[in-house]
Write a protein that binds this DNA or RNA. Structure first.
Lengths: 214, 214
DNA sequence: TTTTTTTTGGTGTCATCGCTCCATAAATCC
DNA sequence: GGATTTATGGAGCGATGACACCAAAAAAAA
């Protein structure tokens, strides 16, 4: 096979890879995203990545290791809009409104698989896959923690009533996002997801009545 | 093996089964519920059901056929509390509050697997399992339709503003329930789920201001 | 008792899955 | 150019997964 020039700079001794590792990883991510870990076979992977079994193991080690890399790659993609929305410089309520709207849009892109790669992955799996299950559950926890952090900042800024249960509110929006991801995978339209998001924002804690408020 | 007396009445000619079909199906349902379709192997199944491979195929036909029966059995279990809550004779808002609370309780029973068997099943799977995916998606749609029906009745009874988007509201509570199921599988406590449910009820449509309302 | 019907135990099969090995190819370094 | 290093192609391997077959067993029916 004709070796292709990949990436600008090349150095190091041996034969250069005939494929772009990043592109191959991206192809694997899409496949895992769409079909899950079990639903994606080794042969599916190397076909989609355009590489041979030996190159696969040489470059990625194992299916499970590749999956973990794919998760990391996904977090670079989804974490992009997720944290961008969370770190927006607006009041907390607007931030969460935008976060849900961004999710509705991202879950229904036509250039990527529907839904979220992590939201509902490995919730039902064999005991032998406990590692994957824990990995995914941990990622879900982390995204919820990020939302809780943002809510805490919001409370400090006075955007939320002082008696708001931050953890519960973060769990609520985390649940809603996961449910939206399922809807997306079942074929829900972007508009439908936006409606769900809009209703979800109706649950935003009402401001406490203050003596000096209108 | 000593043939066991099972069920009250026996008739028909041949050798009686040495196991209770209902119990075996129940054991399979629990396993599928906990581990999903892919995560449950043939050997796992016959071990949990306490029967041999030949008895398995004789009684259930195939793994996929058994899964469908297990889904039906689950619907008998979960449909019980689900439709009981939906058909409660109260106002619509109270009904949905009780529905979410019932889900929180049922998703965290200590005598059954956590979460819901259907909520997030087969959202990511191989193309060869399109049948299962469609089956599960259809079940999810049905439960959402049932909620929409109840909301429509509620609107007719004046429990909901006339401009309420019924489909969107049903999709919202459907999403929330699925998200709660994921939380449950990730180990969330019943109390946490109840908090999520409580917040979800804050999204209930506000009554339209009427001239003759207080 | 004999026949008929149904279930069971045990063994075998066939495909797939994830993975490994090794000889060879293609690059750099000396 | 030769040595060294890294990647590739291709063949194959052991385990598992889902399932099939068939003779024997256990019941009712004749």
């Amino acid at each position: 096979m004709t070796p292709k020039k990949i990436g600008g700079e090349r150095r190091g001794r041996g034969r250069p890879p005939s494929f772009d590792r990043g592109q191959a990883l991206c192809a694997a991510m899409r496949l895992f995203w769409d079909r899950g870990y079990d639903g994606t076979s080794f042969d599916d992977l190397i076909a989609a990545m355009g590489i041979s079994a030996s190159s696969f193991y040489h470059a990625f080690g194992s299916k499970e290791a590749l999956y973990q890399e794919a998760i990391d790659a996904y977090i670079k993609v989804a974490g992009g809009w997720f944290f961008a929305a969370l770190n927006e410089e607006t009041d907390t309520r607007t931030t969460f409104g935008h976060l849900l709207a961004a999710a509705a849009a991202e879950f229904t892109r036509d250039d990527l698989p529907a839904g979220c790669m992590i939201a509902v992955a490995a919730t039902q799996c064999a005991p032998t896959q406990a590692r994957l299950r824990d990995l995914l559950a941990s990622q879900r926890t982390q995204s919820e923690d990020a939302m809780a952090d943002r809510l805490r900042r919001g409370m400090a800024a006075g955007d939320l009533p002082a008696d708001t249960d931050i953890e519960a509110l973060a769990a609520f929006y985390g649940s809603l996002l996961r449910g939206m991801a399922v809807q997306a995978r079942d074929g829900a339209s972007r508009e439908r997801l936006l409606e769900i998001a809009r209703i979800g924002m109706q649950a935003w804690p009402a401001a406490q009545p203050h003596p000096h408020d209108s």
